[in-house]
Design a protein around this nucleic acid. Structure first.
Lengths: 223, 223
DNA sequence: ATTCAAAGTGTAGAATATACACTATAAAAA
DNA sequence: TTTTTATAGTGTATATTCTACACTTTGAAT
């Protein structure tokens, strides 16, 4: 039995140097055939976060995904059938080629597809507003939440890390300054491993020491 | 006619060097006689923000108050009568002696009273969690939203401003460094006026140039 | 052996942050 | 009118962080 509110989820991944969002093509009215953020009604006996997890699983096949609440939207006119409150979340996944191929998994949507976040089709409801808010929040939270690392595989190169920062901040960064700063933070573990399968000099791999990351940023506020 | 969700509001003011929150003593079950954040059901045909404004007006007599959404809470067990989703807001008011004297204004509460934010009684529902989240958010948002200024009268002294910053950040700041930094930002208008009614040297008054404030901070993110 | 494509590295100057203590002023009290 | 009191208001030196900037190294492919 459904409750009377929904969750909508901005599912983000990073692929080919770009931040991408998973959108669903709706197969139901209103906004049938429009692209929208994956979302659905929360069940009456279901925790809200579990509903988000369910949507994530249906759309990506993944469990244990990093997620965070964004904002709630309850405008009287946001849904043509009357007010439907929605709680928006974002989720960050490690997107790779295997996950790029999406399949329709629920009957209320025709297909799901990844789009570059800054080049999405027109979206249903107020979903464009939700996406924009998400991107703005990510820029701020990047500084004190392990956002960049949730978008990367466990082992990553500094160049990959820089590309994620650039994708979220939507601007290019200086390579040397970026590396210096990251390494000075002290929460990157340098591994004795390098990249494989590249046709040029292989880059060193790093891991995040989440413990040190959180300790470093728990008291990071102005002044 | 009530909808099925509520708004709860962390109403904050600054008085006698301390950040204070307005709490309401409940006159209804559940949690009758407990202190709680002011909040109530949103009407079916009422915008959520208007509901917050209504609660603010009932409790403080003020309109046009600065407010911002915090987070939504929808735990199945947060309310003994079943899940009630609540959207938490915070609001910042200019608290002075006239506003300190509160009166009971609604029948679902016995009285309202101001408490120092870091010394509140045990709260109903998950309201302590909401308050703590609010204080944490304020610390972060202080750096890019005009939070400190919403807690002060239009004209204020630098010492008053510093006290607000200290109250929110919950630590003391260096006077000279604080003033230097604030004045360097360039969004404070120095007035040709000084404080009145003090028994010692009167301090110069300042106003916020909100336009410059927002311009200054709109692009303030890491890197 | 050469080419290619990306990895990896240092330094100088600018800006910002921090630590720190005394003088100036206005009203009140003597 | 002088003195006291309480807060306003101010500068400098050092440390830290930020920024701009270009070449050498490496490993695979040709």
């Amino acid at each position: 039995m459904y409750s009377n509110f929904t969750v909508d989820c901005v599912i983000l991944g990073f692929h080919e140097g770009e931040l991408k969002v998973l959108l669903a093509e709706r197969n139901e009215y209103p906004f049938k055939d429009w692209w929208a953020l994956p979302g659905f009604f929360v069940d009456n006996d279901e925790e809200m976060e579990d509903a988000v997890k369910r949507i994530l699983y249906e759309n990506t096949g993944l469990k244990d995904v990093f997620m965070d609440q964004l904002h709630s939207f309850a405008g009287l006119k946001r849904h043509p059938k009357g007010r439907i409150l929605t709680v928006a979340y974002y989720a960050l996944i490690q997107l790779d080629n295997t996950k790029l191929k999406t399949k329709p998994v629920t009957n209320y949507m025709k297909q799901a597809k990844w789009f570059p976040v800054r080049n999405v089709p027109e979206l249903a409801f107020d979903h464009k507003q939700i996406l924009d808010l998400c991107l703005e929040r990510l820029q701020r939270r990047l500084a004190y939440k392990p956002i960049a690392f949730e978008l990367l595989p466990e082992k990553f190169t500094l160049t990959q890390l820089q590309l994620v920062y650039e994708g979220i901040l939507n601007k290019t960064l200086d390579k040397r300054n970026f590396r210096k700063k990251m390494q000075n933070y002290g929460f990157l573990k340098e591994l004795d491993e390098v990249q494989t399968g590249v046709a040029y000099r292989a880059a060193r791999l790093y891991k995040l020491d989440k413990r040190k990351f959180l300790k470093h940023f728990q008291n990071t506020v102005a002044f």
